[in-house]
């Protein structure tokens, strides 16, 4: 029996189910842009090196250029088109607007999707390569500019708008930390609810350091 090299798949994107035929070679990125007209997700390098195509898969950030569409069946996908609450922008979107966290804007959807998930990762107590002591007893590191730069390093900006991007991410993280009591946070991180740690606020000095 010859193997079928295409399938009809159903993708759950931004709360809507889409059924489409795909050649198995189709990446999630191409399915979004070429099949579903969701062109907010951008194609940069198409080889996992720039982050422009970042989306959320089951709440976690991922590059859609290395994710096959057919392997995305059954997963909950959120793209930049799905992060706002109706007309109300997501706090990360608002912060990018407020602080000019972009120049040409091409990397911005990926930056914003990445930042949304990154703020949750940090709130769940995940360390990063910028964290001096990764042991759980050391607690969650403050979300300093160094931490933000390290955690956002998978998103390149060829305009070099990093200074404003770091400030926008810091402002959004601070706003979310102020709004959400630690005990109310839900995150499907592996550390479990017992390991959630309150993210320390980021001071102006740290933001501009």
């Amino acid at each position: 029996m010859a193997l079928s090299t295409s399938s009809a798949i159903t993708l759950n994107i931004n709360g809507e189910k889409h059924t489409l035929p795909v050649d198995h070679r189709t990446t999630l990125l191409d399915a979004l842009r070429e099949h579903l007209d969701l062109t907010g997700t951008k194609k940069g390098c198409d080889q996992g090196q720039c982050g422009a195509c970042t989306v959320l898969i089951d709440g976690r950030r991922a590059v859609s250029c290395l994710q096959l569409a057919i392997a995305s069946e059954g997963r909950v996908i959120t793209t930049i088109e799905g992060v706002a609450d109706g007309e109300r922008l997501h706090p990360v979107q608002q912060a990018f607007l407020d602080l000019d966290g972009y120049q040409c804007g091409y990397c911005t959807p990926g930056q914003i999707c990445s930042a949304i998930a990154m703020i949750e990762e940090h709130a769940a107590g995940w360390p990063s390569a910028a964290t001096a002591d990764v042991r759980p007893e050391a607690g969650a590191p403050p979300l300093t500019a160094d931490e933000i730069r390290e955690r956002m390093s998978g998103n390149l900006c060829r305009c070099g708008a990093y200074v404003s991007i770091v400030q926008a991410v810091a402002q959004a993280a601070e706003a979310e930390a102020a709004q959400t009591p630690t005990t109310a946070r839900q995150f499907s991180g592996p550390s479990g609810p017992g390991d959630l740690a309150h993210p320390a606020g980021t001071t102006d000095a740290e933001m501009t350091a």
Binding site: G51, V63, M118, S128, A129, S153, G154, N155
Partner: peptide, 12 residues
């Protein structure tokens, strides 16, 4: 592990 790749790639 944290020194490798990016947040996106480590999730995958």
């Amino acid at each position: 592990v944290l020194a490798g790749a990016s947040g996106q790639l480590r999730n995958m």
